[in-house]
């Protein structure tokens, strides 16, 4: 079993981050081309807590080294199941995901939490990512190699994920500013 951890801070409010998070894998994000589709399978607001629970299926296409392809049966498309919870009251977004593909060989369990920064709750948002990676098999050496490869890939994707998400946040802010500028022009048009 191996662990992966990653923490960073985004210079945007929790509100902005939580909105942009739904757009994380859109065309604005040119760094996450390994995610080819994101489907919402179910969604509900828990009546007692007001928490928004969303279940998604994420489709990825990644280049996998030949030695690993032999173990996983030759497929490069893989699926990830994600359950997320947004608590307005606690101002947290918690996303838990697991791999559906090759689950008998490798288990990857990831938890991501977005929460307001303690010192700058209005302007900054903390991102924390934690993953537990376990390879199953009779040969511990092979398991170790698979686990190491997965951790390394996690690290690469985390870096790309951050860069891509920064771009989505920036584009969202710009789009919103343009929208506001357009709205402010309306009275002029009407009065003229």
């Amino acid at each position: 079993m191996k662990f992966f951890e990653n923490n960073c801070t985004f210079e945007y409010s929790w509100r902005d981050v939580s909105i942009a998070n739904w757009r994380k894998y859109c065309a604005w994000n040119d760094r996450c081309s390994h995610v080819i589709a994101v489907d919402t399978v179910s969604r509900r607001v828990e009546p007692s807590t007001g928490v928004l629970i969303t279940e998604r299926l994420i489709t990825c296409k990644q280049s996998v080294p030949k030695w690993l392809l032999r173990f996983i049966g030759g497929t490069e498309v893989s699926y990830v199941h994600e359950i997320s919870e947004v608590s307005r009251e606690n101002q947290t977004v918690t996303m838990r995901s697991t791999n559906l593909t090759c689950a008998h060989i490798l288990s990857v369990q990831e938890t991501v939490i977005y929460s307001p920064d303690k010192d700058h709750p209005e302007t900054k948002t903390n991102f924390s990512q934690h993953a537990q990676i376990t390879a199953y098999g009779a040969f511990s050496r092979i398991c170790n190699t698979i686990e190491d490869w997965s951790v390394e890939r996690f690290d690469q994707n985390a870096k790309k994920g951050r860069e891509g998400f920064e771009r989505v946040l920036r584009m969202s802010r710009e789009a919103f500013a343009e929208l506001k500028a357009d709205v402010s022009k309306i009275p002029e048009v009407i009065s003229s």
Partner: peptide, 20 residues
């Protein structure tokens, strides 16, 4: 983002826009 089934992408886009 797109749907894993291209034929569902138009319906997904309408829903996603409404949801946001």
């Amino acid at each position: 983002s797109a749907s894993l089934a291209p034929e569902c992408s138009p319906a997904k886009e309408k829903y996603d826009n409404c949801f946001i």
